[in-house]
């Protein structure tokens, strides 16, 4: 069994994924990062995990704009799987836009922990992790 990932990055921008991974590793080499380039893959992974009772990552950074299944689509699917998920998952919406309509729409999902605007820098990430891991990491 592979090591359980702590953080899930869902974004179609591969450069972004590379940079995020790099930044996270700069903060902590202990954190395991898993990446998906669209919502559909992420949903498949999560449903697979729930079926196999594999523990899920604590944090998901979710992009809005993605092919096949976008951020919103992912959230809708996640809602359906939620009942089967045991541990709590912090989902952060990550977007390059500050569009009011997106922010407003995000506020309607109680599954969301926060809304982050790209680029996500080290300081921001550190704060998020502090909140989640209570400085235990």
């Amino acid at each position: 069994m592979t090591t359980k990932p702590n953080i899930l990055l869902v974004d179609d921008d591969e450069l972004y994924l590379y940079l995020m991974e790099k930044t996270i590793h700069q903060l902590s080499s202990e954190l395991v990062v898993s990446t998906f380039t669209d919502g559909e893959q992420a949903v498949e992974y999560i449903s697979n995990c729930t079926e196999k009772k594999i523990e899920l990552p604590e944090v998901i950074f979710l992009d809005i704009n993605m092919p096949f299944l976008d951020g919103w689509g992912f959230l809708n699917e996640f809602k359906k799987l939620k009942a089967k998920i045991q541990n709590s998952i912090n989902i952060y919406m990550v977007s390059s836009s500050m569009r009011d309509s997106d922010i407003k729409r995000a506020s309607h999902f109680e599954e969301l922990t926060g809304y982050v605007v790209k680029p996500v820098d080290k300081v921001q990430l550190a704060e998020i992790f502090k909140k989640i891991y209570h400085e235990n990491w």
Partner: peptide, 14 residues
């Protein structure tokens, strides 16, 4: 704003 911003921000990070 969305599609152009992401490569640009990535670039600045790099």
């Amino acid at each position: 704003s969305h599609n152009l911003r992401s490569p640009v921000t990535s670039m600045s990070v790099i």
